[in-house]
Each structure stands twice: as structure tokens, then as C-alpha cells.
Design a protein around this nucleic acid. Structure first.
Lengths: 223, 223
DNA sequence: ACAACATTCTAATAATCATTAGAATGACAA
DNA sequence: TTGTCATTCTAATGATTATTAGAATGTTGT
């Protein structure tokens, strides 16, 4: 019953699936969910050749998941809309839910549960509002400016060690970065712990926060 | 910075992406979202060889999106959890949102907007509750029994023409089936319109309804 | 116009995937 | 047990995809 018509419809959706069937492309989507970036920046983050990054970006573009524009010498890529970030979050959640292998690999990579934030998102938000904890965003400043968790202050990894003194000694600290697969906040926990601070890692990034329907802040507040 | 570890994580998520990168496998997921089915049933619905259906199911199984069990001579497959149906809905929505090609093909296939339900989900639900409209589920009885829209009555395609008289002549009718890509309700609209009924197609199926956070009914009520 | 640079296009190879046919497995029924 | 049926496994084919290198494009600054 109208098989060829159906084939067309499912084939189009499969194009989206094909676009997210490569680890490199997924990593690109996660990076672009933080902020728009040039091909060079993306290639560096992925540790791949610019030519390869460009080829993957072309694939993502043909599936309309990203768009590009020229900015002088550079080519800037961005997600074509925020629901693409939502798709990435959903894929990751389904993978975590269904693939035992992922949960095991994840458990080995992410530091032991003792270093993770234990309370729920709403509780964390309330503690941050009341100033009981200090939430720091260790991503590059530019990504922070575009969107960050409420009450979070920017403290990029590159500056962290130099600026530790800015953080009140008696307060508990929560560090977050680009999401569960991003390891910058692990590094931050290591550095701050070594200085005797009480610090934990939050797995969420802004995409996860947004997907959960929670509010975000923009701009350079809380500096 | 720990590139190989990252590669492992993204590779696992990409397995899910690879599983949903084939039109046949997406169609399988949509069918299984309605109810568990045997390999034979699935192959018939897809109009493909059993061997091919089996191979695709194996791929889905290795990504842990479906599980199988033996029931006598038959092998019965089902989604490993309902969030897999949610993933299918999300993929389709992203595809509709981003792929102009899909929207165009879709526009040609789905009957003109005049035959579509124009009101929102909550409004429709309210109209059904008050009995102002009759909602009919034209999927096979078994799929209806497992989950259906509130106040919907089962009226499988195979029996529709024979049972038209059961439907009150003066009420507006809304027909739905497995979702936007399923064409059974189009056929129902054609048949009922020819009999002079005022009937429209609802694009949603139970997966879309569930993804929207709306309630469903189970069992054989409203018969 | 020219040189320097970022990015894309083209072409080529190796790797992976879809599809099909034939053999093998496991359950049922005589 | 034997035959039948549904399904999976194995092997083989052709069709895509990932990746790399080299040439080509477009932009900036001189």
C-alpha cells in the first residue's frame, strides 16, 4: 500500500540518523551546542585534520543540522536550531539507558561517584540561589557568555589555577562544563581538591539543563 | 586530552545513531512502538523478505533498541523500552523541522490540510470527552488494546466499511492510526467521506501522544 | 596584483553496510 | 523419528562511507 511513498518519508528521517551515526559528528554537535565555532577550532577540539572536520561538517550540513557562514577568512558553523542539541541529549540518554557497555566505560572515565553532585537539579538551583554553594562554569568565556546555568560564575579552565583565590574558602563548589562526556570539570575537581576545596562535578551542561526545561542565563553576569 | 577515552564514549552513542540510519529499521521501530510483533508480521508490513527483516532486527538488537523472545514457532520482537519510541518521534520531528524535502514529500502524501484535524491536542481531547466528536482508532485491534487515545473506539481498517453504521451520523469523526507516516487513517477518511460523513485525519499516533505528555488508555474500553 | 591563509573540492583507497541465496537451527505436529 | 515451518547464520555481491592527499577557491593584508 503506497510503499514507494513510505520509502521516501522514512528515507528522509534516515538521513538524520545517518548524520548522527559517526562519533566524530556527534562530538561536533556537542561542541556546537555550546557556541558557534570555526572549522579550525572544531578540528583542534576533535584532534583531527581540518579536511576531515570539514568533510564531517559537510555531512551535517547536508542533513540540515548545522549551518555555516563566512566571517572574513574563517568559516563559522552553528547548529541550525536548538532542538538539534536536544536530539544529541536524547541520543546520549538512550545510549546510556540501553548500552551497558557505555555505562561501564562511562563509570571508568568519570571520576568515582564521590566527586559527583548528588542532589537533583532543582535542589542544586535552590542552593545556588541561596549562596550555599558556588557554581563555576569552566568552559571558555565565550561559551559561558552565550548561555550558562543560573547563578554560575565563569572560571575557564585556562585561568582556574591562577584565580583559585577568588573562590570563598568556606563554601562548597560545584563545577560543570559541556556535559557528561566533557572532562574539563573532572580536571577542575582535581585541581581544586588538591587545594583543599570541597568541590564536586555536575554532569549536566547547558544542553542537558535546557532539555530538562530549566532556565538558563545569558551574558556576563556573576563575574 | 584523553582522546581515546572520549572516542569510546562517542562511539557508543554512534551505535544508536547507526541503528536508526536505515529507513527500514526506522519503520520497524515505528511498528514495534504500536505493539510487539513477529518477524513475519514485520516483514509483511515492510514488504521485504523475512531474511532482510531478520537482519535489520539483529542490528536493532545489537544496539539494544529491541529485545526478542521465542513464542512457540515464532520469534516476537518488542522495543526494549518506551523511550525508544520517543527517540523515533524526536528523529521524525527534527527531520520535519529541518528537511524541506521531507515537508514537501509529506505534503504530497498526506491529504490536503482540509482533511486534517485543525485543533490542538488538548482541545481535541476536550471535544472527545464531551462527546462532540467520535475518535476512531483504525489500527488492528491488538494495537488498540495495548494503548489508545482517551475516548477513542476501535474500528480496524479491515472492518471499517462493514461497521460504518455503528458511527452516529450527526457527529464529526476523527480517525488516527500509527502516526504521521501511517496512511491507514488517510484511507479511512476516504472511505468515510465517500459515505457522506464529516471526517478528519489526526496525524498523531500513540507515540506522539505519549511524547507530548498526554494520557493514554489501555484495554478494550469504548467498544 | 600578490602572497599567505582557511577552507572546500576532487579523486582514490580501504572499510563498512545492505541485500540476497543457501545451509543450519529449533520448535511443532503427525 | 520425520517432515514442516519460522527464523537465523554464513557467505558473497554490490553499494556507501571514512579518510587521506593534492589541487582549487575565496579572503585578507601588502
Amino acid at each position: 500500500m503506497s510503499r514507494d511513498l513510505k520509502d521516501i518519508l522514512y528515507e528522509q528521517v534516515a538521513r538524520i540518523g545517518r548524520a548522527v551515526s559517526s562519533p566524530k559528528r556527534l562530538e561536533l554537535l556537542e561542541l556546537l551546542a555550546q557556541s558557534e565555532k570555526t572549522v579550525e577550532e572544531l578540528a583542534n577540539e576533535l584532534s583531527v585534520d581540518i579536511k576531515l572536520a570539514s568533510a564531517h561538517l559537510k555531512t551535517l550540513k547536508s542533513a540540515r543540522l548545522v549551518t555555516s557562514r563566512r566571517a572574513g577568512k574563517y568559516m563559522v558553523y552553528r547548529l541550525s536550531s536548538s532542538d538539534v542539541a536536544g536530539l544529541w541529549v536524547m541520543l546520549r540518554e538512550v545510549a546510556e539507558e540501553h548500552l551497558l557497555e557505555l555505562r561501564m566505560a562511562f563509570g571508568q572515565i568519570v571520576s568515582d561517584p564521590e566527586h559527583l553532585v548528588a542532589v537533583g537539579r532543582e535542589t542544586l538551583l535552590e542552593q545556588a540561589r541561596r549562596g550555599e554553594i558556588i557554581v563555576i562554569d569552566v568552559r571558555p568565556q565565550r561559551e559561558y557568555n552565550l548561555a550558562h546555568l543560573p547563578f554560575a560564575r565563569s572560571m575557564p579552565m585556562a585561568e582556574l589555577e591562577r584565580r583559585v583565590a577568588e573562590l570563598p574558602k568556606n563554601k562548597r563548589i560545584v563545577a560543570y562544563c559541556r556535559g557528561p562526556f566533557c572532562l574539563m570539570s573532572n580536571e577542575a575537581v582535581k585541581i581544586l581538591s588538591a587545594q583543599g576545596r570541597r568541590v564536586r562535578k555536575l554532569l549536566d551542561g547547558v544542553s542537558e539543563w535546557r532539555a530538562a526545561g530549566l532556565p538558563l542565563e545569558v551574558g556576563t553576569a556573576h563575574e
